[in-house]
Design a protein around this nucleic acid. Structure first.
Lengths: 354, 354
DNA sequence: TTGTAAGCGTTATCAC
DNA sequence: GTGATAACGCTTACAA
């Protein structure tokens, strides 16, 4: 038994034609119950499995979904992959996963490698708002859904969080605790979702009659976050609160605080972005905005499925609400002095710690 | 341009035969430079991309690697996926990813769905040592490499860490700090890798003339870990040190300690398993055994590639060394009393906290 | 209801 | 070096 059994082998063994085998196994056309039994039996005996490449080639239906994410080291993205994989596999599709490693050239190269598979559909988190690679998918007539990162109004199906609302949750929480001296820490303002989150915070502060928090851009790597935040705090002193708008930055802030011996929430109240298990286990546990990642995955798949089915409505544009998980890293402001005037003593002390 | 261009379209446009197009684009046979140019040009004009299903069907070479992991929510597994994806995609293979969600039935179902793709090879972390599903792969003559979880001597290529040595690193570290009262926390002793890690610790303690640490099994979910550890500490008091042998358990221990107000490393020294970014950012930062996950991925791919190439040597059995990252969560024992006799005061105080 | 035969897009074989 | 032609394993008209 060196080579795998083919449909002809099964047909011969069951004493029927290949077409009948196909009809039985694919449950396409009604077949005489007796033959069904014989075919099923023969298939089982031979361990027959239809060759997917062959059936796809003939039928034109591919049963493959590709998912492209900027990184497989970021739990937000892998959770999305997990969610999609679960939906999709329950409907007998398989998932090709690919990472662009936050690099547009890699994104393009990976997509070029995917197109020849002619997947039934693609779910993609582009590594930049420009999403220049969309032309590749459009040219190949492959339906796709954009998740998480998208610039303003897109003329394609998209699923993301309500960025403005998510950030507003964090802002309201800090405002209600009396914080006015807040620093926003975000990866890069070139991403529209980050800009929207900033707007969400600014709007709430404005509504509360406060000046907009300053923004610190810190890049996408863990190290750059910690380093730039550290430099900022050494220069300008420690703000009363930090609100992070991208998940990687959350860890960088914690490291910087640990290094500078800034107590959370004593010296600094802290709101993280994304909600991971470790945030609940950390001491103090971290208050954070939780993205509905599983729902994002299921909604993206729902969108995509419609397109695969050939539905031709105008682009869907889903914006999902987030939740704020309030934990121990945020506390009420105690003195009015500390909030209106950054603590110069701490700043000086911190500067010595080098 | 409703349908994608085929090789025939390119041939017609370049004024050559399909065979020549195939030879040019696949760089199989030497072709007249002038024709090469014409073919390349025509292909570019038409945006031609060879249909992978068709080429696979004819050539029998699939360029797909499947990777099966027990979970896509565990960073150790996703890092492995990331590592493999990077290796494999650089050699023009694509990756089908599938999660068994720690369930043998799902593992079987997913593998049954994969086999019809006839992937060139499979990299799998089985969800149990039994790895009953291996027969599926063997029957289909699909080469595979087992990673991380394997029971004793396997007659298949395997890549894992040196479990005994990894745990010994943790044991030596704790011993050198004067710890004798150590509690081992592990998911489940039904996994051979966990048993080996326990042995590694026991061996070092024996060599140091100490009694073997007790072992607490805590299951595979975050909640069960925290809950069972909490119960244990309330009953028996707080040990001088905890050594965790599975990555999920690391977080559970931290949560339990936070809840019981056990200070790390003041009351309890703590060694985690696996080394994630958050461990470095946590306060205190966490001493942990680091698995060489990227190397595990590259080695698994190297093994698999040999099998795909048809090499027929006896099964490779790679065991990679781990490193211990010493950080702030472990400290030397201060008083001799505290170490030989668990602190009953703490235990009593803790019991009140309910 | 079942069988026959064509053909999906590619690559391999073998003439030329 | 190049081009017909067949064949990969399957699905699907269409004929019986």
């Amino acid at each position: 038994m060196r080579k795998a059994a083919t449909i002809k082998d099964v047909a011969r063994r069951a004493g029927v034609s290949p077409a009948t085998v196909s009809n039985v196994l694919g449950e396409r056309k009604p077949v005489n119950p007796e033959l069904v039994e014989r075919v099923r039996h023969a298939a089982r005996d031979l361990g027959y499995q239809a060759h997917r490449a062959a059936s796809y080639l003939r039928s034109g239906k591919s049963r493959v979904i590709a998912i492209v994410v900027p990184s497989l080291e970021n739990p937000f993205f892998t959770s999305l992959v997990a969610a999609v994989e679960q939906c999709v596999s329950s409907e007998h599709y398989d998932v090709i996963v690919t990472s662009s490693r936050e690099n547009e050239d890699i994104e393009r190269a990976r997509l070029e490698a995917l197109v020849p598979w002619r997947p039934a559909g693609v779910i993609i988190i582009p590594c930049s708002d420009a999403f220049a690679t969309r032309t590749l998918l459009a040219a190949a007539h492959i339906p796709f859904v954009v998740v998480d990162r998208l610039a303003g109004p897109v003329d394609a199906d998209s699923v993301a969080i309500d960025n403005v609302g998510a950030a507003a949750l964090a802002a309201d929480h800090l405002l209600s605790l009396g914080h006015r001296d807040v620093l926003i820490v975000a990866s890069s303002l070139t991403l529209a979702n980050v800009r929207e989150r900033c707007q969400g915070i600014a709007a709430r502060f404005k509504a509360a009659g406060c000046r907009s928090p300053r923004i610190l851009e810190v890049g996408v790597t863990f190290d750059s976050v910690a380093e730039r935040l550290e430099r900022r705090i050494r220069q300008d002193g420690c703000p009363g609160a930090v609100c992070v708008l991208t998940n990687y930055a959350t860890l960088g802030v914690l490291r910087a605080c640990a290094k500078l011996r800034i107590a959370i929430p004593g010296d600094l109240s802290f709101v993280g972005f994304d909600d991971y298990t470790w945030m609940d286990a950390a001491s103090p546990s971290i208050t954070a905005v939780r993205q509905p990642v599983v729902r994002m995955g299921t909604e993206a798949w729902a969108c995509l499925k419609e397109r695969i089915a050939g539905k031709d409505h105008p682009p869907a544009c889903l914006r999902l609400p987030c939740k704020l998980e309030v934990r121990q890293s945020t506390a009420a402001v105690v003195s009015r002095i500390a909030q209106s005037e950054p603590d110069k003593n701490l700043a000086r002390e911190v500067a010595k710690t080098s």
